[in-house]
Nucleic acid binder design. Structure first.
Lengths: 198, 198, 198, 198
DNA sequence: TATGAATGAGCGTTCATTCAT
DNA sequence: AATGAATGAACGCTCATTCAT
């Protein structure tokens, strides 16, 4: 009996996963707005109605995808803690860039979604924690230790990082995503490094 | 007779302006994609059909709004030319920030529009000249004169500026837009200034 | 004073004529259904509103054009009266073909218009007299004189002629319109000629 | 399970049929161009959107209706092959008349549709084969065997037949359709029969 | 639980018609 | 009499959502 339920749950989980994968693929291909639920479910090889057994709306799928990515990033980043703030921030940026590069579609998607949705707060509220906050924590640590300049608020610096990822995901330059990010982060680090430190 | 025509033309111009204003407001409120022509015209207090007496599509309205802003920016900026590259870039950024602040809705709008539209190139192609290029020219000048670092490509630096405007327009921080931009530009300038220059 | 009025009338007549010509051209170019009043008036070089000073609707224009053509045909045909019915019918057909060829657009237009209009009777009622009836008169004369077979009703024969013009106007064959009509009329005449007549 | 699917498919087929019938009725009543999809679906007692589950456009419905009729005609006709060309042609005409009489609306409809549509060839191209060609084959056979006159091209004769059906479907005469056709075909046959044959 | 046919509000767009000038 | 900007009903069409099976 327990096994049966477990099997059922597994199956349910599997369908959910199939939908998520299909959605990600379609978002990547056609963009969030231009992806229809019918399209997702066709890609998933499932009936349209099945969608609503797992998600309430397209936005919810996006949210889930974003949350998944966020967790992966947080996880990977939280592994390293002992370096200098400059090194740590750089490592975080590089690592984040790598993960976003592999799932590039997701970040810009939830960003532009937030612009268009009728309930933008809802999405960004539930999305940002653990990501933006992670960077803010590192920057704050650096400012407290004197490594980073303190004449600029922490969240402003964090916002620059945020904007770099956001825009670079859509960059029309020939430079590869991760390299592009690396160069920009270099400038940023030079811009926020306290000159007189050590 | 001439007066009569003039009067009519004046009214026509006014109606066009009303639509543009209404569109800008709606874009700002709901985003480009979520704004319907019916919504614009209702806001404008005009009939739906009237829209098509002035514009061929929603995109055309966006384009017009963006063009207007671009012209204003280019005009204002091209007034100042004789300073050091650092000063010039800063002035440009401040001035652009001021103008965008007054029409803040427009810049981010055309950006996210370009993500969703079927013909993104068309929009951004016709929009960017005179804006992004303007910044690139200044940065290039600074790199050649040795004021700015040259180990990072010009267009990467320009893209950072671009991304700062783009994201700050949607910033949820309490800091006012222009001040926000000023702080970020300060960091950027410190990040790209050649340390050994003079 | 009288002159002034006359001049005005002349002017009015001229505008009417301009609209008719423009309409004919547009009908010919794009078909009746696909021609808009705005399009007609643009071609005419007149304001949209002016249309309603002369005509109540697009259908009315079509009606007028058709009436004009009908009058021309009737006029031209009524010149010849003294021949044998066979010769007369042939001549009528040839002459009609010539006139329709020059204004080919008009016949099919009022035909298809009658299919689609909500008030088909109105159009065809006011259109047919003088055209269809003309042919019927000739056929009837031929039947009475024994030249044409009488085992088929007059209006059936007349309807064949009608249908020949109608369809040939849209023929996709390479054969020129007038020649096409001529061949068909030849068959028709052979089909209705009384074999034992002299 | 198989039954379940079958039941659903059956229902789906039924809905399709309902739409086709409703469309045919509306086409008959108001003409193709003046029939709106909303009107069809209201007649069908179904939602507007449902239409697009079955057909891509109004044209596709027309095409389907026409194809159905064409198949019925071709099928019925191809049964008889061994007679003289005169007899065969007459039989074909009679048989076609009968079938069109039962579905009279369809033939004239696709004809006038082709006048107005932007892509007339597409419709008539896919419609005519098996119908017009059928008649041409019989006529050609008759011309080769010496039964029919050869001084008039085959396709001209075929076009007369075509035009007879087309126009008679809209005849305002009191004579019943099939009788009307019969009379006209009699004239035609007399007009194309080679006098010296036998 | 999975389904997909049915739905209808909403979209962008057209255009005959009106009316103040 | 001439104008053309304003109008809004109607169009074809899309798609998120529902619900009977």
């Amino acid at each position: 009996m327990a096994e049966k339920i477990s099997l059922r749950k597994q199956k349910k989980f599997q369908a959910r996963q199939t939908i998520l994968t299909a959605a990600a693929q379609q978002f990547k291909l056609h963009g969030f707005a231009s992806t229809s639920i019918a399209g997702i479910m066709q890609t998933a090889g499932l009936g349209v109605g099945t969608f609503y057994n797992y998600f309430g709306s397209k936005e919810e799928v996006l949210l889930t995808l974003a949350k998944n990515l966020r967790e992966k990033i947080t996880e990977e980043i939280s592994a390293a803690n002992e370096e200098s703030s400059v090194e740590l921030l750089e490592r975080c940026c590089v690592c984040t860039a790598k993960l976003i590069d592999e799932n590039r579609f997701i970040l810009p998607l939830f960003i532009s979604a937030s612009e268009h949705s009728d309930k933008p707060e809802q999405i960004s509220k539930s999305l940002s924690p653990g990501f933006r906050e992670l960077f803010e924590a590192i920057i704050l640590r650096g400012q407290k230790s004197g490594e980073f300049r303190s004449d600029v608020p922490t969240n402003i610096i964090s916002e620059i990082i945020h904007s770099i990822y956001q825009t670079t995901a859509f960059s029309r330059l020939e430079i590869p995503f991760q390299e592009n990010i690396r160069l920009k982060v270099k400038i940023l680090l030079d811009g926020i490094r306290e000159k007189n430190f050590l």
